[in-house]
Computed example of a mutant assay.
Amino acid sequence: MELSESAVRDRAREYAASEPLYDVERQHVETVAKTFAGDEYGRRDAQWIVRWYFRRYLGAYPDGARREREEAFRDTDFGDVADALDVAVEAVGAADDATGERAETDDRDIDSALAALTELGGVDVAVASAFLQFLAPERFVAVDPRTWRVLVAAGDLDGDYPDPPSVADYRRFDAACRAVMARTGAEAWTLYRALWRSFAKSADDREVPDGK
């Protein structure tokens, strides 16, 4: 499997044409960063990202594990959620209203965002990376067994998917994603769609994630 520029673009387009959640995902890609950079958002806005992480498997993710995570996040004090989001928004760099450009994010920024988000109930590094993906969709890709395995199959990453991933694991994954983005000229949201679609094209339909 090769993640060439044409392959990434083609598979991202296939994702848009075939994935039932694409339209609502696209809407959130366009709105989440601005929503969380302001003060007028509620628990449901944050819950959507946690739910998305598990429900995009369309029933393949073990229901008990999904419910446990979602309920743990739901039961977290909303003030703590807002505080963590403030840290994450600041760490990844809010886009300038005039230029739309975002400050470069380094490893310390990633560590800061992940540290704040993983203090929340139901949020580990993998789920926290979903917040990063929607807070800065041109920069970050959410890590999961599928995206990880496609990068390994393409030769851009090595090792089995860590269960669960640590901050250091996410840094390795992020570095691999950035290398592919630099090579192909694709933004992270395009790459995410290409990775997810690549797994769908190559994986055994009977394979399901481990629920962790």
Rank of each mutant, 00 (worst) to 15 (best):
E71W: 14
E40V: 01
T190H: 09
R56M: 14
D124Y: 07
L132W: 04
V29I: 14
R206T: 14
D39H: 09
E104G: 09
A182E: 12
Y61L: 04
P162M: 15
D107T: 13
D156K: 08
R51N: 14
S166R: 13
L151D: 12
A95M: 09
G38K: 03
L120W: 06
E104M: 12
S166W: 06
R51P: 12
A182Y: 07
Y15H: 15
E90A: 02
T35Q: 05
V50Q: 15
A60R: 14
V127G: 12
K201D: 11
Y161R: 13
E101Y: 09
A182T: 10
I49Y: 04
G93F: 05
D156F: 03
A168W: 11
D83L: 02
V167E: 15
P145T: 06
G42N: 07
G121N: 03
V152W: 07
V143Y: 02
F131E: 03
Y15W: 13
A103H: 12
V8S: 09
D96P: 06
A136P: 06
K201Y: 06
Y41E: 03
V89G: 01
E90I: 00
A95G: 08
V141C: 01
E25V: 04
D77M: 08
V167C: 11
A179R: 05
A46H: 01
V92C: 05
A175G: 12
L132I: 00
T118I: 07
R139H: 11
V87Y: 00
D109M: 00
D106S: 07
R69E: 12
A182D: 12
I49W: 10
